[in-house]
Write a protein that binds this DNA or RNA. Structure first.
Lengths: 333, 333
DNA sequence: ACAATAAATGTAAACGTTTACATTTTAGGA
DNA sequence: TCCTAAAATGTAAACGTTTACATTTATTGT
């Protein structure tokens, strides 16, 4: 049998309003009454009906986390960071993957935000469309976006400093390592991380007075096979690059595999660098040179900003937190 | 303005009951009425109040996923598998980590199960206590456990064949590789995966007429540093083992690091094998010999069984699905 | 002792659905 | 046409809380 406040009220000989107040620590209820109610509640092993409470309070105590996909460490770490902060703030975390489909994202967005199925939302995306921006701004709940900046009022953004990371790394390849022929395996063009990394690569060249051979920029899909394919393409050119900057570590791994099958050695025949500093990268031989992103920070920061926004009475203007990246040296260049 | 069925009813000049039925595809409502209601709902951009619906239906359309921690690929893959199946079944996934604390698990369990905050539960654990078993059996909602078998009525279990995997791998080391002095770095004794892997190790020795030197079995914590520490300990023995079977890949990686600092080479000086076949293991040099677990299967199977149980009217007896493991050859032995 | 005020409690509505049951409308058969 | 059964719709309660407002009870200062 599941007890309700009604039964407790009966037993304590008070009204349900008093029971409700006693159990919610309303200061208006007399200490002795409260003690009585609480003891009966305990005796009955009473638990409030969450669904009823959510309904009347118009909140669910749940924060939604929407990601394009759940793969690799990046997403895990974000989930972990969000969950831990949410948990200590008394919230649960509803995780949804849109399986990289925009339609699915819009659908999930609608399901989550309409009528407060979730009280707040963290959206991880690098590919914002106008429809999504509209959905976000109309959602009526606090939102934090990780990745691309939607430039919306009252929406916080966690941005990863892709540009700076790429710029530093490429500059290092030019200055310290003396490479002048550096290729780039870019990520998907609709992915803002990829775009920024590419810009860092381009700007570093320009600032050092180098021009890039357009054939040295090839697109990839952030996956190992696409990295390997890009490597093969680059190594088939008449004008071969001396070094390759892959827009993420997975594609850099693809280069390692490509080099292996070509019988080329890294970095003697061709240097390789990546981005992300995923767990594997330190176990590659030679250790991959890459750019590290403090991913755990990202999730935690996002959740912290979100809780702050949810708990605040007043409106808070948009905040932008840039998570800086750091170069990780390796022997692959 | 958020419209409710009341406004739709008014506009369509029908009762709210008819609106509700029309929107829920009740066959009793006339086609023309339904069309009218649906068109008004669309015009109003109506969305049902999920919280109200959950309340009256006494279900939330959410399944809970409780894990001891959110780290490494195993958990990611499980979340991914669960989420994808849940999503296609019309459910959302609430993820909670208990941060490896039993108290927290009990608390989360209570929060999730009491009064249907979640409609079904997947619990990932290798360390079941009586209190937790009690909590599960009293939960009143469908439950699927991944890991240890709680032996409860109407609770499905997804078990990973740790014993067989360890047995096969150790047998292979003995038969094919000819090792007779094989050490074992065990996992935490309260972890059932660890216990089973150790048993496979022991039984393989017994079945091949070998006795194990008790000094060759040391405990670890499933982490890289604990693997390295164990490696140092084993290599400081007078009677050194020829091969080391670590209960998971992370500890095997610790062995690689230990070997590196001792100036020992794998497998010439000492062979190393692991368990799990995590992503990194194929990038270690030499490639780690290990036991692969089809993790994606685990999450998907769990969610599938759970949905099946939730959608079934009749009671279903406990089901046990054993996910078989497979040996992965590598040059580390 | 008596207002006046503060503290404690009670009453009842409200939240937006779903649904059992009652009623009305429609269709079909004689 | 009328009767009956089936189809469609309506009425109203129910779900378990919270909370605005009303009422009662206790406390304080004079």
């Amino acid at each position: 049998m599941d007890y309700t406040i009604k039964e407790i009220a009966e037993r304590a000989d008070v009204s349900i309003a008093t029971v409700s107040r006693a159990l919610n620590n309303d200061k208006r209820v007399k200490a002795s009454t409260k003690a009585l109610v609480v003891s009966i509640a305990r005796e009955f092993n009473y638990r409030p009906n969450i669904l009823a409470r959510n309904f009347v309070r118009r909140k669910s105590n749940i924060i939604g986390l929407i990601m394009p996909d759940i793969v690799d460490e990046f997403f895990t770490e974000v989930i972990k960071g969000v969950e831990s902060v949410a948990h200590s703030g008394g919230y649960f975390t509803l995780v949804a993957s849109t399986h990289s489909r925009e339609g699915s994202l819009l659908e999930t967005l609608a399901a989550f935000t309409h009528r407060r199925m979730v009280d707040g939302l963290i959206l991880l995306t690098t590919n914002l469309s106008p429809a999504i921006k509209k959905g976000l701004s109309e959602s009526g709940i606090p939102v934090v976006v990780i990745g691309e900046n939607p430039e919306l009022k009252e929406t916080d953004v966690i941005a990863i400093d892709n540009y700076q990371g790429a710029y530093s790394l490429v500059s290092h390849l030019i200055n310290k390592k003396g490479y002048t022929k550096i290729a780039h395996i870019a990520g998907p063009p609709e992915n803002s991380d990829a775009v920024q990394r590419k810009q860092g690569y381009l700007q570093a060249h320009q600032d050092h007075g180098l021009t890039v051979n357009p054939h040295w920029i090839v697109d990839g899909a952030f996956t190992i096979p696409s990295g390997e394919a890009a490597f093969r393409r680059l190594m088939s050119l008449i004008q071969k690059p001396e070094a390759i900057f892959a827009a993420n570590d997975m594609m850099a791994i693809g280069c390692y595999e490509g080099a292996d099958s070509f019988g080329l050695s890294i970095p003697e025949d061709v240097a390789v660098a990546g981005f992300d500093d995923i767990f594997v990268s330190r176990f590659l031989s030679p250790r991959l040179m890459t750019v590290g992103v403090p991913i755990a920070e990202v999730g935690k920061t996002a959740a912290t900003l979100l809780l702050d926004r949810m708990n605040s009475e007043s409106h808070i203007a948009s905040r932008l937190v840039t998570i800086s990246t750091g170069m990780v040296l390796g022997q692959s260049s």
